[in-house]
């Protein structure tokens, strides 16, 4: 009982490797409206493979919108035109028969293209490795209920922690800024009592690495929030700004 198929024209970015110059290649596809966007690409790849052509390289894993592996810019929008979903959750019923769809990789100096639509987002991990944690060794933790956390603090921390690290914020930002991602991580830990001891050293270290990686800076256009699949709020960026200024001007810890 499959619904009527859609005929679509795809214009997909193909790029051999990080050193080569890419270009758009046209593909015509027929797809069920119930299929997801990535399933459409699977089908197309299967067709290419059957013709012994190299399939389009794109990344995805969980296909439930939580792992943050997938990420395509579809018609100018990271994760496609619908709000609050990852690319893997985009379904073809949201497109019209006969439509032309442009598919591009996330573009940023800090996210170099590896091949076709696959980019290198390892910069995010470098930022996290510079303090995106609470220093607690295995086994030394006190009883979980010995630290009461107000429900709304836990909830606000969760809202920030919901970030899936996909990089759509960087892709959407006209400056390719990573501040929504970084601020979400800083807020998650900074809002909880457990995160207080390292709060001001953390923000300084993470921002230092963020700046070194070649991300742009924030000009408060809020494209990141609009395109974030998890609806992470720019309030987090404000909180990070505040923490950073406070850390620089009042904290006694040595320069980082």
């Amino acid at each position: 009982m499959e619904a009527k198929k859609l005929n679509l024209k795809l214009k997909i970015w193909r790029q051999k490797n990080s050193n080569s110059v890419g270009s758009f290649v046209d593909y015509d596809v027929q797809v069920s409206p119930d299929a997801s966007f990535l399933e459409m690409l699977d089908e197309l790849n299967n067709r290419l493979e059957a013709n012994n052509e190299e399939p389009i390289v794109f990344e995805s894993d969980c296909r439930e919108g939580i792992c943050g592996t997938c990420g395509l810019v579809i018609n100018g929008h990271p994760h496609g035109p619908l709000p609050k979903i990852a690319t893997c959750q985009l379904h073809m019923r949201n497109f019209k028969d006969g439509e032309t769809i442009w598919v591009e990789p996330f573009r940023a100096k800090a996210f170099p293209v590896i091949k076709d639509l696959m980019v290198d987002r390892s910069g995010f991990d470098k930022i996290l490795q510079a303090g995106g944690y609470i220093s607690v060794n295995t086994g030394g933790a006190p009883d979980a209920n010995s630290i009461p956390v107000p429900k709304d603090a836990a909830s606000e921390a969760f809202d920030a922690a919901a970030c899936i690290g996909c990089g759509a914020c960087v892709a959407a930002c006209k400056n390719a800024s990573a501040m929504l991602f970084v601020s979400a991580k800083i807020s998650h830990l900074g809002l909880l009592p457990q995160g207080q001891p390292e709060r001001y050293i953390r923000v300084q270290r993470m921002i230092k690495v963020m700046d070194e990686l070649g991300f742009g800076s924030c000009t408060n256009t809020y494209a990141c929030e609009a395109e974030c699949p998890k609806g992470i709020s720019v309030t987090n960026i404000a909180r990070m700004n505040r923490d950073y200024v406070r850390a620089k001007f009042t904290s006694k810890i040595a320069e980082v």
Partner: peptide, 27 residues
Amino acid sequence: LWLENKQARPVTYKVNGSPENTTLFSR
């Protein structure tokens, strides 16, 4: 900032979605 931010995206998008996700003023 403008110069640095331009460098942060050396290859630009073919299709730009910014009219839908930002205000004219901020852009």
